[in-house]
Nucleic acid binder design. Structure first.
Lengths: 192, 192
DNA sequence: TCCATTCTGTACTGATAGGTAAGAAACGGT
DNA sequence: ACCGTTTCTTACCTATCAGTACAGAATGGA
């Protein structure tokens, strides 16, 4: 009961995502967020908590939506297919119209102390993604897809390194075609 | 003539570099800079101009000093040696003690509008580095080191992509050993 | 119809951001 | 010793930051 909220939580969260995506955690002022979301400051605080709390919700929303390829990649039949899907999906996300780069990578990389919690949050997310990929590659080795001599940790590290780099390249204005050519080269490092 | 300056310009510029390196352009407050540099605010403005101007001088100082491997790499005898020097040098820089990542990559990636000039500056620097690498690889093809079928633009893009990714990996706490293993995998993509 | 509850808009808070005015202090030249 | 010049210190400026107090408005239940 009580007065009903006049906006949809998820819909406005998506608008907040656009702001954080483009300007990062520090670069997104609360006035930018409220303006883009079309709600007042107290409404924002009541609905999502403070800026840090809103950012976490945005990151969840991002990983469940635009960046869902991360979650889906591990489901591919082979390790190679998982890696290729991860990288091709990354190209699509980081070159999306109006949003260059990846939120989880660029949202809070080198920051002031005020943004430390946001930075730590993204570090944890990236490490988790790397761990999931390494586990997927270890499974590929168990399945016989990869030789016993393959360093799966190094391979997983390489793939995530490339995906991080793709995000920066997109910020610099690289086209999807250019980045797919980069992925082609990266895939040629696949063992065997 | 006039009252002599009580500090050394280059020495204090190096202290400013440490602040920008760790916290980025936006995350480095002027009070952080003056405190680290040990000079007063008006002294900073008189000696280096405003924050943006100081940042440009810091970037120059960074590329001439800690990140000089970028400039040196092109001088290697072969294209392959240039690439390897670039990547091994990148590992050393981004895992340096007390400073995770690369200033030119992380200093201003996703920012508010106030940091737009700094962001544009770093984009231009990164593009220039990619261009120099591509030219070096084209020379390698003329020299017969690379086959006529090699896409030098894609290869240069791949190498810079990896170097960008190394910076993010270092921020996430990767060790030099882990990153050298990543470079090993990356070098295995070298054509031929 | 009245009430407890919840949301909304206005207006505000203290803190901090980048940047500067003004005068005292330290020089070289004469 | 005096002068023009440059740097240094103190104190201040306006704008903006994240966050909130408070009262009015809209609901469901009794």
């Amino acid at each position: 009961m009580g007065r009903p909220r006049e906006f949809d939580l998820d819909e406005r969260l998506d608008l907040a995502l656009r702001v954080f995506w483009r300007h990062g955690y520090e670069g997104a002022a609360l006035s930018d967020l409220t303006e883009a979301m079309g709600i007042s400051r107290p409404s924002l605080y009541a609905a999502y908590g403070n800026k840090e709390s809103l950012f976490r919700k945005v990151v969840d929303h991002y990983l469940a939506g635009p960046a869902s390829h991360l979650r889906d990649a591990a489901g591919e039949a082979t390790g190679r297919a998982a890696v290729e899907r991860l990288l091709r999906g990354a190209v699509a996300v980081v070159t999306a119209r109006d949003h260059r780069g990846c939120l989880v990578i660029q949202g809070a990389l080198a920051t002031g102390k005020q943004a430390d919690p946001a930075r730590a949050e993204l570090v944890a997310r990236r490490r988790a993604a790397t761990d999931r990929l390494r586990e997927r590659l270890e499974r590929a080795r168990v399945d016989g897809e990869l030789g016993a001599d393959v360093d799966t940790a190094a391979l997983a590290g390489f793939v995530t390194t490339v995906s991080y780099g793709l995000s920066v390249q997109a910020t610099d204005g690289a086209t999807p075609e250019e980045l797919h050519a980069v992925v082609d080269v990266a895939m040629s490092a696949w063992p065997g």
